[in-house]
Design a protein around this nucleic acid. Structure first.
Lengths: 368, 368
DNA sequence: TTGAAAGCGGTACCAC
DNA sequence: GTGGTACCGCTTTCAA
């Protein structure tokens, strides 16, 4: 299709071409362009000129192969359509990109098998590190994949057996749910429904948090825990089941933002007035939840910060490896009309983000 | 921390180790594991066994360098926190991952300069293809970066000069906005406000669409176009300016989902009743927008499909390169209470996703 | 200071 | 069928 007689325009790039054009050795080109010391000014000049002239950009693949470092990290999450995950990814990407790291993104759809497979793929791609939010904490395949990792691994809101040697960024759900629970109890509710997902750390901490709320007010633990998927569909179903069961709770806490849409559908369909007929609290916000009528009370956290911290932790490990203590990120309750007017003492309501005080019982970070 | 005296467990991996263990040549190992034909059953067996025994996984970096293909694609978008973008990414990732491609994700924050820089980084990483949603259609740096691409490039909702040789997946905003406009006009509105962002294809098509709505009903083009950033803040500001200007519109169409939150804040603050005091239509949905009170009328589209089609287009180009025609994806208007009760003829309301009929004037896909 | 050469971990051509 | 070997494009001794 083409005879290479008249059009040698972009004949070839590569470090070799630069070396030839500059009339120097390949090694020198590498040195100069890698910013290594020990090159004469004129050498530097010649090489830079030649490189610019050819529009040369190094092949990162070859660099990575040789340097044994790809300057890339892998992210394994359930679903980027969840604003919570998107925010974490975005936070991580922002700090990684300034550190010149690229992000390999994968979605597992919450399937443990896919988690494991994705981790393997990323490791084969020689990522320098991994940020993972696995669906389960005890999936054998996922644990095996992680154990095979030479690269540092940071987990977000999950705790794994210590032999994995991972690093952790955890949310203090205990605190937030405790505050939310106390708020509801002091507002006069005596029975609280809590919808949670699989048995992972956030689930356990949320339950502990609400239980602690009962305890701290000297009340019997009148808590009904509803387990299922953290999906809109299940949110709808959960509200239905909780309200139509015998002795229904007058307040429900949704342990996951994805439940909210379905829960609200159920509430609307039943023509219930939030804050009057039923008090509702969500964990993690959704874009329009403050503009809902009434606004949705929420246990908040800085999700972008989670991602940023995870990335920073990873970069620190890349610099110098070593064991680290889990980092506990704050969570706080923002009371809003969906949980009715507040009638208790003022001290329990909406703690500010600055309120990082450890809960009495302290967070549980041990593996199960 | 560890002396390597007693634990030579994973001494070394690599294809060489497999070859040694199997007692065969390196080339044979490569052949077998790459699934190339021409290996005896026993050879295949020996190699497979050895590989399994060593837990061998090929170094994708080395493969990529040699094969001149990384089986990875780069995604350049503005902000993954926008559910619209997240959905596109997710759609693309889903088809790419089954094709064994990895996704390198970058956020540009809507900054053209960052767009260009990210494109360069991805190309240096030798991605096999690019899916891009640039902030601008005529940013010199972005265009230069794209021109340097050997790999196929798919653009979503942007059109670039034809010398770029890109491929396109476009939304039929003209249709959706036309339907929305007609709905509003037939409901009795005579003056419509339209909030748009920068001068990119969606902006132009949306304006054309609403203008066509006036035209098709034989009405004077009583349209006020408000330009600015597609952010919540500007959504709030835009509503404020539109309503406090002289001769304010009675209906406003928001040309971007990120405007909605701010717009609703403005509406709430002014204690306006949507669908009565003001009719509001959003472009692209937000999680809780149907549960808002009242529900928000929206120009919809299948955003995940956009991502999937872009990925499919890219994969097709990877298989066999060639020019392609832009693909036009449907858009449809869903009337909801935020734009008041419907009073016109039934035919203009909420077209179903199936309604792909071309708008009379046809879509404009030429570069500006 | 500079350059030749030995890899990094595979792939693929080419004889045997 | 199988194995030796020349690369892929770059980094990094090591000797000059």
């Amino acid at each position: 299709m083409s005879n290479k007689t008249t059009e040698p325009a972009i004949v070839k790039s590569g470090i070799k071409a630069v070396a030839e054009l500059a009339g120097v050795g390949i090694a020198s080109v590498s040195r100069v362009l890698s910013g290594q010391p020990g090159s004469s000014p004129q050498m530097t000049q010649r090489v830079m000129d030649a490189a610019r002239q050819l529009g040369y950009a190094p092949n990162v693949l070859a660099q990575s192969l040789r340097r044994r470092a790809t300057h890339s990290i892998g992210f394994v999450g359930s679903d980027i359509n969840n604003p919570l995950i998107a925010s974490i990814v975005s936070g991580a990407e922002s700090v990684l990109s300034v550190a010149k790291y690229s992000v390999l993104l994968t979605n597992s759809g919450g399937d443990p098998g896919v988690d494991a497979q994705r981790i393997d793929v990323l490791l084969q791609r020689q990522v320098d590190g991994l940020i993972v939010l696995p669906a389960l904490e005890d999936d054998p395949a996922t644990l095996a994949a992680l154990r095979g990792a030479q690269a540092p691994v940071v987990l977000i809101d999950r705790t794994l057996p210590s032999d994995i040697g991972a690093h952790y960024v955890l949310s203090d759900h205990f605190q937030g749910l405790g505050d939310a629970g106390r708020h509801l109890l002091q507002a006069g509710h005596s029975r609280i429904g809590l919808v949670v997902g699989l048995d992972v750390r956030p689930t356990r901490e949320r339950i502990r948090g609400v239980e602690a709320a009962f305890d701290s007010l000297g009340l019997a633990r009148n808590l009904i825990v509803h387990r299922g998927r953290l999906s809109p569909e299940h949110g709808e179903q959960a509200i239905g089941e909780l309200l139509s069961g015998e002795n229904p709770p007058s307040a429900v806490i949704l342990g996951g933002n994805q439940l909210l849409e379905g829960a609200l559908r159920a509430v609307h369909r039943r023509k219930l007035t939030l804050g009057v007929d039923l008090s509702l609290v969500s964990c993690d916000a959704l874009p329009l939840c403050r503009l809902h009528h009434p606004p949705i009370a929420t246990v908040m956290r800085d999700t972008a910060l989670l991602g940023r911290r995870a990335a920073e932790l990873l970069l620190a490990q890349l610099r110098e490896p070593g064991a680290t203590d889990p980092e506990l990120m704050p969570t706080w309750f923002e009371a809003r009309a969906s949980c009715g007017p507040f009638v208790g003492s003022a001290s329990t309501s909406a703690a500010s983000p600055g309120a990082k005080k450890r809960a009495k019982q302290g967070p549980s970070i041990s593996s199960k």
